[in-house]
Amino acid sequence: MSTYFMFTLKAFVNQLAYRSEVWLRLLGNYFAILIQVEIWRAVIGNGGSASTTVEQMITYSILNTLLFALLLNRVSSKVDGSLKSGSIASELVKPLSYPLYLLFDGLGQSLYQFIFTVIPSLILAWILFGMLPPASTIHFIAFLVALLMALILSFLLGYLVSLLAFWFLSHFALSWTLGGLTTIFSGSFLPLWFYSPSWAAVAKLLPFQYLGYVPAAIYLGNLNEAELWRTVALGCVWIILLLVVAYWLWGKAVRRLIVQGG
Rank of each mutant, 00 (worst) to 15 (best):
Y4W: 01
F7K: 08
F7Q: 11
T8R: 04
K10I: 11
K10T: 13
A11G: 11
A11C: 03
F12Q: 03
N14Q: 07
L16Y: 01
A17Q: 13
Y18D: 09
N29S: 13
F31K: 05
F31Q: 12
A32Y: 06
A32R: 10
Q36E: 12
I39K: 03
R41M: 11
I44M: 15
G45Q: 03
G48T: 12
S49P: 05
E55K: 13
M57L: 15
I58P: 06
T59C: 02
I62E: 01
L63F: 10
T65H: 05
N73Q: 15
V75R: 11
S76A: 15
S77K: 14
S77R: 14
K78G: 08
K78D: 13
D80P: 03
D80V: 02
G86E: 04
A89P: 04
L92A: 10
V93F: 11
K94F: 10
K94S: 11
L96E: 14
S97W: 07
S97L: 07
Y98W: 13
L100E: 06
L100V: 08
L103H: 06
F104A: 08
G106M: 06
Y112H: 14
Y112L: 00
F116P: 00
P120H: 06
S121Q: 08
S121L: 02
S121T: 04
L122Q: 01
L124N: 08
F129I: 00
G130K: 04
I138S: 12
I138H: 07
I138N: 13
F140D: 01
A142L: 02
A142W: 05
A142K: 05
V145N: 06
V145Y: 11
L147A: 05
L151N: 01
L151G: 07
F155I: 03
L156M: 03
L160W: 05
S162P: 09
L164N: 11
F166M: 03
S170C: 01
S170N: 14
H171K: 14
H171N: 15
A173P: 00
L174H: 10
S175L: 10
L178F: 07
L181P: 05
F189P: 00
F189R: 10
W193C: 02
S198G: 13
A201Y: 13
A201K: 14
K204F: 06
L206Y: 01
L206F: 04
P207V: 07
Q209N: 04
Y210V: 08
Y210H: 03
G212S: 06
G212A: 09
V214L: 13
V214K: 07
P215F: 01
A216F: 03
A216T: 08
N224S: 08
E227F: 08
T231N: 04
V232K: 05
W238M: 05
W238L: 04
I240T: 15
L241Y: 06
L242H: 09
L242R: 05
V244M: 14
A246V: 08
R255V: 09
R256N: 15
L257S: 09
G261R: 09
